[in-house]
Each structure stands twice: as C-alpha cells, then as structure tokens.
Design a protein around this nucleic acid. Structure first.
Lengths: 338, 338
DNA sequence: TTGTACGCGTTATCAT
DNA sequence: ATGATAACGCGTACAA
C-alpha cells in the first residue's frame, strides 16, 4: 500500500510525461520559453492546455524562495483617499506578474508592525507602506529585510527605501495662503483623527498664518475619526466659541462638506459669510452647491507610481530618484470666491 | 562543496535542535500544544522565541495542501458600499487564523472568472464572491472546488454554497412605496452603471408603481459609473424632459446627493418641490441639508457574517441556514417629508 | 508522547 | 538544449 498524498491536481511531471520531456524542461519552458527548443515548447504548450495545468504557487515559493506578492499596508479601507490609492495600485499591477496582498492597520502603529512581520514572513517581492511614521522596530524590519519598500502618501527625509507622495505641510500652507489672498482673515482649522499627516497639515496652516502676520489661530480638533457629520459639529462648536470666524480650512473634504451643510442649516452664506476649503478634492467637491474649494492630491498616480518604483527595484534596476514628489494643486471654487 | 539552497532563515529543525527534540514535535507543539509534554513545550517555546522562528507558509501549504487564506472578490475598491463590506470582513477576520486576500473585478464577469481561477489555484480555505451573477463557468469552478464559498451583497435562488445579503428588488420597492405614501406621484428612477443589482432595483421601482396603479414610469439611466456629478446631470436631463416630476428614487446615495445639489442650484425646494430618496444610507445622508432619505443596508454586518459563515463551514460544522437575509430599513428624512 | 521516513511540487546545481 | 539529482521546510502516516 503506497501512501500517496497527492492533491489530485495536474503537476509538472504530468505535463512532462505528456510532452515526452522531463519536468525541469517544462519548468524552464514556462518561465523562459527561449531556453527550450521549438519542438519541445510546442508539445509542452499543448500538454499544458490539454491537462489544464496550473502551477502550485506554494511549491514555487518553497523551491525558489521567492513570491510574486506585493504587499500593501494601509490604515483604512473605507477612507476614500486610501481607496483611490488602492485603485491606482490595482490599475498599475494589472499586466505585471505581481499579485497584491492587502493589510489594514486601522491607524495603529502596532498593527502595522504585526502586518509587516506577517508579510515579510511570506517573502514578498515588494512592500508598500503608508506614511512616514513607522515604529523604529518596523523601520528596522523593513530595512534589513532585503525586500524593496515604498512609502506612499507623503514625502519626508530619511526614506526607508523608496518613497512617493507630497508634502502635507506645504499643501496645507498653500491652501491657507489661498484663503488669505481671497481676503479672509479669521481663518480656523477644523481637524479630526489627528494622525501625523493631519498634524503636519496643521503646521502648514500655522506657517501660512505666521507669514501673513495673522497671529490668532482658531483650532478645533477632535481625535475621533473624520466624518461629514463631525464636520458639522466642529463648525458648530467653533461658531459657539468664535462667531466672528470668516473661513475654515478643513483637514479633509468630508469635514468641509459637513461644514457646508451646517452653514446652510444656520443660513450662513458661503462664501460671503464663511469661506470653506477642504483637502484632497474628492469628486463631490466640484458638484456641491456652492462648489467647494479643495487641494487636489494625485492619489491614483501615487498608487501607480508606487507599483512602478517597486517593479523596477524588484527587477534590479533601481529608479534614479528614490523619492518622487507628486505635488498638489489648490483648486479654487465658489466656496472661497469672495 | 555542499550545495545548500537554504534561505538563511530559522527553520523547524533549528528550533528542534535548540529544544532537544525532533522537528515533528516542534511542528505539533506549534499547531496543538496539548499533544506535547509540558517540559518539551516549554523548551520549544523558549527556542522559538530565542531564535525568532517564523513558519514558512509556502512549506506549510505544500506539505498540508491547505492554506489559511480567505479570498474576497469584489467589483470595486473605491465604491463606499464595498469598502464598508470589506471593513466588516477585516473586523471579523481579526482573531481568526485566516488571512484575507483581495481581488478586484472592476465590474467585469471575465475578470471575476480569472480571479476565481487564480484564487482557487492557491487552495484557499474559503472564498467570498460578490453578487449572484457569476458566469456559468465561474459557478462550476466554485461548485466543484470543494472550497466553501459565500456569495455576498444579495440574496437569490440557487446559491452556489453559502449566501448573505438582502433583496435589492424588495428594498427598492419599499423605498418607492415610501415616496408614494409621502404623497409623491410622478416618481422618477435615476440610475448609473446599470449592473445587475441596479437592474433589480429598477424592477422593485416598477413593482411599487404597478401596485399603486401609477403607470407612467420616468426612468433616467446611464451605463457610466456612478458619481455625485452624474447625479446632478441625470436630474438635469430628467427635468429637461419631464419638468413635472415630483420625486426621484436614486439608484444610490451619490446620485441622490448630486440631485440635491442640482436642485439647490436650480432653486427647487426639497422636499416640497422635489422629493429625493437614495440607496444605501451612507454617512453623509443624515448630515445633508435637508437630510436625505435613504435605504439603510447592513454592510458591515454583511462582511462579518460572510466571514462567520465561512469559518464555520471551513471547520466542518456547516451553518444551519445556507442563506442569510440581512434585510434593509427605509430611513425617512427631511428630503421626503412633504 | 515522541520519532522515523517520506512525500508535497517545484527549482537550483551540475553534468552531458 | 536537456536531464538527473537533490534540496526547499513542513506535515502525514505509521511505528514505537
């Protein structure tokens, strides 16, 4: 009694037998057809098709000590910003031999570290991580892994490896400068989930006010996750404390939309009574009445660029630039047209 | 000269040597600590910690012919509806031994089939697919795979295996009945990306009008992907053709929001001049001014239930019910309060 | 409770 | 250009 543990699936040897060659020849034919004679190749291709051969990725990974997995670790799957980046990643990964594996940190550094460990243990071809605020342990893991890594969403000094994003501080500063140019003076900052990127946008807000010698800053924030409803609450709280505010720079577009709805509820005219500026330029900002000013960020391109940088690094020709700054565009609309 | 292809990583045998036992004992200890003596277990745990042992998943998969991967195949990562479901999946999968692998069909049946093949070739523990409109080939692949499968988003006859969702037709019907009860009579249907689920919502719209003996139906649709801006355009087109319309049932919330903005632009009062009802009840519907009526669907719970059904099926105790109907709730708000 | 022997399906190495 | 052989790291089957 033989003890067979075979999976019942067609294997390389089955194909080899059918094609009248050895298993290794089939393996080579599948990986690089130029290393096999025309005749053998033709027979192998037929056999593969006839038998419906599908490679066993686990065996490939075990034997070669490599995978074609690109891991992406992002803080949230429901945040529109990250889902756009993800879409860009999927778009770019199509047509490459790579497969995406997704991890969700829910905005916690510890979960990020756990995910990095898990992913690295699978010997991924490359890794995408979000932001520049990894724990020291995570940075160390990534640096010593030998796996190409891209940090996305943000640029900054001291990249782990590759990097694509933009400066949130400069972007926020430009937005607030726009408000100042539009004639607003008592400009508030509305922010939720004060994560590191939001903190740096707050710095940009202060930069702009400082440059303009406006020294009162009106800052309303909450650690709670951002939402449209929260945007309304934040504006309400702000007005209770400082009814004389004349514009709000919102941490993101959901908050800006919520602020608009709240202003409408209170019959505050936008932009004459209150200017509103968001951040990210989601699709609905243009559609709103009045249309809402925002800072356009290049999210799809960010995802696509991340994949391209990784692909090049994996294939051995490291990109010239390790850091790609995709910039941003302040997009003025009716909500700040005084 | 030995030809070693070792990866340089710590293996089971390394741990075994350090603990003074054989590799298989370590293997057992890690999978089911109750099958190993206390003393051995303690030494093994120390060795694992000391050496920083991380299991090689490829080797595990190859030897056992199993993985702990749950594959999820969804049509879009940027659609809020699916990202909520995804969030529910991630929430539920935490604390289980399973890992999620995500596929993105971009709403094409062929890409779905390709992804199902790819996923199945990795011998996943279970699979989540979206909707009930798989190609016959995909259905066959899934049915014969022996892998537990959950269809999510929608209920219907003839499940492939497990199923969790709700009836889009009944939900749409209930929404339109609400509009009729509110006193609206010339009710239009605004729809984008007329995918099968949207088509079934259209049927529900017709059901309600038929029951109420309202026989004119005002249907404005486009195959283009849904967006807030598109919602505005659809309402504009509708008004050009039928200025006497008194309410719109929107295929989804983005379209409803776009319709609201367009109505504001045209100084059409909502709800008195135009009633608006959306579908899915995204967060911003409650925040809008006026707040927008919608149909609440249980997206997080849908994702969570899918994982629970799968987990039970994987572990051998099939759930009592193969089909879970999560239902829906019409949520009336200011936009239909005549 | 523990161990021995071997197979899982593929690729690396070396030889022809 | 092709093949023989061994190795990748782990789990299964069976024995002790």
């Amino acid at each position: 009694m033989k003890k067979s543990r075979r999976s019942g699936k067609v294997t390389l040897s089955d194909v080899a037998a059918a094609a009248g060659v050895s298993a290794i020849t089939v393996s080579r034919a599948l990986r690089d057809s130029s290393t096999v004679s025309e005749g053998a190749l033709a027979r192998i291709e037929r056999a593969v098709a006839d038998l419906g051969y599908v490679p066993n990725v686990a065996a490939q990974a075990l034997a070669s000590n490599r995978t074609n997995i690109i891991g992406a670790i992002i803080p949230s799957v429901t945040n529109n910003v990250f889902s756009d980046v993800l879409k860009g990643i999927y778009n770019a990964i199509e047509g490459t031999p790579y497969q995406l594996q997704l991890g969700n940190t829910r905005y916690t550094v510890l979960e990020e570290e756990r995910l990095v460990r898990t992913f690295l243990s699978q010997r991924p071809a490359g890794l995408i991580v979000s932001g520049i605020d990894q724990s020291p342990a995570t940075r160390e893991l990534l640096k010593t892994s030998g796996v190409p890594v891209v940090q996305i969403m943000e640029t900054g000094p001291d990249p782990i490896d590759l990097m694509v994003g933009f400066s949130h501080r400069l972007a926020a500063r430009a937005a607030v400068e726009h408000l100042i140019e539009a004639g607003y003076r008592r400009i508030a900052f509305l922010g939720a989930r004060m994560d590191p990127r939001t903190q740096r946008r707050l710095l940009g807000y202060r930069d702009a006010l400082g440059d303009a010698k406006i020294d009162e800053d009106l800052i309303m924030t909450t650690p709670r996750p951002s939402s449209v409803i929260l945007g309304g609450h934040l504006l309400g709280d702000l007005l209770a404390r400082r009814p004389d505010v004349d514009a709000v720079f919102c941490n993101n577009d959901d908050i800006a939309l919520g602020a608009l709805f709240e202003a409408q509820r209170r019959n505050i005219a936008v932009p004459s009574g209150l200017g509103i500026c968001g951040f990210n330029d989601l699709e609905y900002m243009e559609a709103a009445t009045p249309s809402l000013t925002s800072v356009r960020t290049h999210r799809l391109q960010m995802g696509a660029t991340a994949v391209e940088l990784l692909a090049r690094a994996i294939e051995g020709n490291r990109p010239e630039a390790d850091v790609v700054d995709l910039g941003f565009d302040v997009t003025p609309r009716e909500s700040t047209r005084r």
